[in-house]
Amino acid sequence: MTKEFEPRIVGILCNWCSYAGADLAGISRIKYPPNVRIVRVMCSGRVDPSFVLKAFAEGADGVLVSGCHPVDCHYIEGNYKMWARKVMLETMLQQLGIEPERFRLTWVSANEGELFKQYVTEMVDAVKKLGPFQKPVNWMTELLEHERSLGTAVQEIAAGGGVGE
């Protein structure tokens, strides 16, 4: 019997609301699944869609971006800008074969520790159901292995998460 699949989810949180909300969850000793690893940015408006793709490319099973509620953004409307990207990114991820449950944009304020727990729990449960995210890069690994078995000279690609730079 193998160990239960424990997804690794990258959480990208804005400093003023969601990161503080996650802090509050801790301060309130609210227990939630340990699967979300948090990266702090000043504003959800800072979140470049490349960060989300980077997380998947590095083997994340899900990405949770969280900012201030609409109207509450510390920088007035950075969260609306992230929302615009999110709308397009969702379609793009779907086209790239990534299930919608693996990416989520939420609003969590500094006093919503419970809500942060809820979002984390929901996401972890959903991703557990999906299983691990399979990088398209796997094709490359398969290919390299195939070539190796043929004994053809192959330029080794640096080990680690990605191929290429």
């Binding site: 990266v39 940015v41 000043m42 992230m82």
Partner: peptide, 27 residues
């Protein structure tokens, strides 16, 4: 806030202490 760098298509706009490279490496 870094919102400009989050949508800079050339990477010319950076957010000090929160650069693309720093955040991606952190990820």
């Amino acid at each position: 806030c870094g919102t400009c760098s989050g949508s800079c298509p050339t990477g010319a706009m950076t957010n000090t202490n929160f650069t693309d490279e720093q955040i991606m490496t952190q990820i």
